[in-house]
Amino acid sequence: MLEVRNLKTYFYTTKGVVKAVDGVSFKLNKGEVLGIAGESGCGKSTTAYSLIRLVPPPGKIVDGELVFEGRDILKLSEEDFRKQIRWKKISMVFQGAMNALNPVYTIGDQIAEVLMLHKHMTKEEAMKEVYKLLEMVGIDPKRAKSYPHELSGGMKQRVVIAMALALRPPLVIADEPTTALDVVVQAQIMNLLKRLQREHRMSIILITHDLSLIAEMAEKVVIMYAGKIVEYGTAEQIFLNPQHPYTRGLLASIPRLTGDIHKLEFIPGVPPDLSNPPPGCRFAPRCKFKFEPCDKEEPPVIEVEPGHYVSCWLHAKK
């Protein structure tokens, strides 16, 4: 359904060009959940913004193709993209969106606005749809008359999800949909996403720094580091048989609630400055397996098993 090919999104700042997303490619099938994981500044949110062409200035998509349902949506004019794709086909739950709800409109009005603008519904028709949407995300339809401040964090997040689903798009991008929520509410929101995904056979791109949340939902996983994909595969491949030193380091640094208490590992150092990335592999300065070619040449992408890709010299040698 969606194929991203060699996507490059750069930010042209006064201090130089920041290569936030630098040659990202992946595929997503219909009804599938793809998780994109990585630490802050790895380019995962910028990838998401690129997919719905909302990269904030001074950022620009400089190269690549976004093939959605058979055509390159990067070639569409802004007007056509807005009318045909954004929200109708691909919508997004923005990070922290629950705090961006307009405080002076009721949540019903805010959801209805989407329907009135895109589907040219009257207010009455739209409100009928709003009640259905609220029920779908587990909010009593009577709450449509509530203002955002009258709702808890979890309920506001549900409202934001209802907005993303208003036009029943086949693909929803969820950017950190549960940050700033407590663990119980987080589990409730994840349950909601799982249920909606199953009932509507939606595709979801789930973007988060929390690998545990990705394990909860995603069939396919992309691990990003410093603007590039370092590893890509099915959830089983990534979680049970990680190949890239970065993925392994990340997984070993997560404290677990069950099992033996091993020593928590960490990855020394900090991610590189993306306006001046190191030559060769971008992870090399922090990698404990670094050897000769790593800081000279960029590692090739190797298919270590069917559908499991790793960008690392350790595997290229074999």
Binding site: Q188, R198, S212, I238, R256
Partner: peptide
């Protein structure tokens, strides 16, 4: 409610 980095329980609704 705490998620674990283990794909075996994928898409199973959590009982809370």
């Amino acid at each position: 409610a705490i998620p674990e980095p283990d794909p075996r329980y994928r898409k199973i609704l959590r009982e809370l």
